[in-house]
């Protein structure tokens, strides 16, 4: 049994190739120019209780997040998101919009490796009540963020680091309370592998990718922080559709959050050469 397992692992390791279509973060690479990507992101979480932080969420929570992505040229791409959820109140309702732009400023390509760097900026507007210490520009908070992404593709590993700064402002109709953080830092380390197919023959062959990401946030003013581990699987169909399934689980932290555990399901469809 052990021999069989070793054999399987060795075979798998030989056939693994790098992949950088990360599920919870963006790589430094951009979409092809004149491509439009449509996404439907869904986030879900169960009941969560933390007596020390006075958190007692009894119901299941769901956030629907439609996203339009546009590859403008080889340097620039943008994402426009809308958010609706029942995360801050019992009823499901529209809550936020965000705009994200990424500029790829460095690209060093070689046959089996590349190194890329990009800068990003994001702005978000939310009408939710501000109940938690985490600054989350994906629906919960109004604010802005900026940061850097560095992605290195070696033959078999695509590793990416994201580091950024986020600033929160009053939400529409809901102000930040006195003790709530006004700024935070976020960072992520992401690794991706292409598991299947072992040999590419056609564009209709499904691709199967696996990812592991470490996602961290810290609020320097209050000393609160967390680190999540986020494994994910991804299927690419007909070389233009993508389905992501990922989970986040906090491995350390003391930040007051809506939940320390969540799941993400994403559908994506890409239209190449969408316009002239």
């Amino acid at each position: 049994m052990r021999i069989l397992l070793s054999f399987l692992l060795i075979t798998l390791a030989h056939n693994l190739r790098a992949q950088e279509l990360y599920v919870f973060t963006e790589p430094a690479s951009n979409m092809p120019s004149k491509t439009i990507g449509l996404r439907l992101n869904q986030e879900g979480m169960g009941p969560y209780k933390n007596a020390n932080q006075g958190i007692n969420n009894t119901g299941y929570m769901y956030r629907l997040n439609p996203e339009v992505m546009l590859g403008i040229n080889k340097y620039w791409m943008v994402h426009l998101n809308g958010y609706a959820s029942n995360m801050q109140q019992p009823t499901f309702r529209p809550e936020a919009v965000s705009l994200y732009a990424k500029y790829r400023f460095l690209s060093v390509d070689d046959v089996h490796r590349h190194f890329r760097m990009a800068a990003y900026a994001k702005a978000a507007r939310s009408n939710n009540a501000i109940q938690y210490a985490e600054i989350n520009l994906n629906g919960d908070n109004s604010g802005a963020a900026a940061g850097l992404v560095v992605t290195q593709l070696l033959h078999k590993v695509a590793i990416s680091f994201t580091g950024g700064y986020a600033r929160s402002i009053n939400n529409v109709g809901n102000e930040l309370a006195a003790g709530q953080p006004r700024y935070g830092l976020n960072y992520a380390l992401s690794v991706g592998y292409l598991a299947l197919p072992v040999t590419y023959r056609s564009y209709s062959q499904p691709n199967f990718n696996v990812y592991a990401e470490l996602l961290g946030k810290t609020n320097p003013a209050t000393g609160q922080q967390y680190i999540d581990i986020a494994p994910a699987v991804q299927v690419i169909l007909l070389s233009r559709m993508r389905i992501d399934l990922g989970f986040r689980q906090q491995i350390s932290g003391n930040m007051a959050r809506i939940n320390t555990r969540s799941a993400l399901l994403r559908f994506e469809y890409n239209i190449f050469n969408a316009y002239k």
């Binding site: 790098a18 992949q19 390509d109 593709l153 564009y203």
Partner: peptide, 29 residues
């Protein structure tokens, strides 16, 4: 260089297809 998935290869092929002087493209993904 730099292609890692069939989506990348497909996107590249789609870009190349817009060139007016290209008649057809064969791919070794």
């Amino acid at each position: 260089s730099g292609l890692t998935c069939s989506m990348c290869s497909f996107a590249t092929q789609k870009q190349l297809q817009t060139l007016p002087f290209i008649d057809s493209i064969g791919t070794d993904i």
